[in-house]
């Protein structure tokens, strides 16, 4: 079991959901300057293959439903990193009518990266932090989603049609 835990912490395949401007910080993180692959972190093409959902920036309602769907399609254990201020409080879109302000209300978040934009160093730092948390067994936000499924669904249903966008299990 420990071996699995260890490997989980050392091998994080992420799906960077390029919802907002934050995505622009990821190419430098991946390429030769910062090279996140040395930590075993790789971008993946589909949610099925990913462990880590990276929400890079603000989420409109239109995007949120897709994020929720992607999240639900990921196999457990799965992790979410909120990226930039927008995921915490709306950031510069704090008074926008169609941007959600608090990501936590809709999907459980393991870790936030503060800033607008956070620099690649901050991103890497977050990854390492998450790695630590997984190794210690602290990154359990995905369990929260299962436990409080009704609550999350209720929150989600306030902004979009849950019936249509949820994955039927």
């Amino acid at each position: 079991m420990k071996l699995f835990k260890f490997s989980q912490s050392r091998s994080l395949w992420m799906m960077h959901f390029c919802t907002g401007c934050g995505a622009v910080e990821l190419p430098p993180t991946m390429t030769s300057r910062f090279d996140m692959e040395r930590f075993g972190i790789m971008p993946m093409a589909t949610p099925r293959q990913s462990d880590l959902l990276l929400i890079t920036g603000y989420l409109t309602i239109k995007t949120l439903k897709r994020v929720v769907r992607a999240y639900e399609q990921m196999p457990t254990p799965r992790y979410v990193i909120g990226f930039g201020s927008c995921t915490i409080n709306g950031g510069m879109y704090w008074d926008s009518y169609n941007v959600i302000k608090k990501l936590e209300l809709y999907i459980p978040v393991d870790l936030y990266i503060n800033g607008c934009m956070p620099r690649p160093e901050a991103i890497i730092d977050a990854f390492l932090k998450l790695r630590e948390m997984i190794a210690k067994g602290e990154a359990n936000a995905w369990k929260k989603y299962i436990e409080n499924y009704e609550w999350y669904k209720k929150n989600q249903s306030e902004v979009f049609d849950v019936e249509k966008w949820s994955v039927k299990k």
């Binding site: 989980q8 091998s11 075993g40």
Partner: peptide, 8 residues
């Protein structure tokens, strides 16, 4: 590690 993780 990747493989182990996937099997886990």
């Amino acid at each position: 590690l990747d493989v182990l993780k996937l099997f886990g």
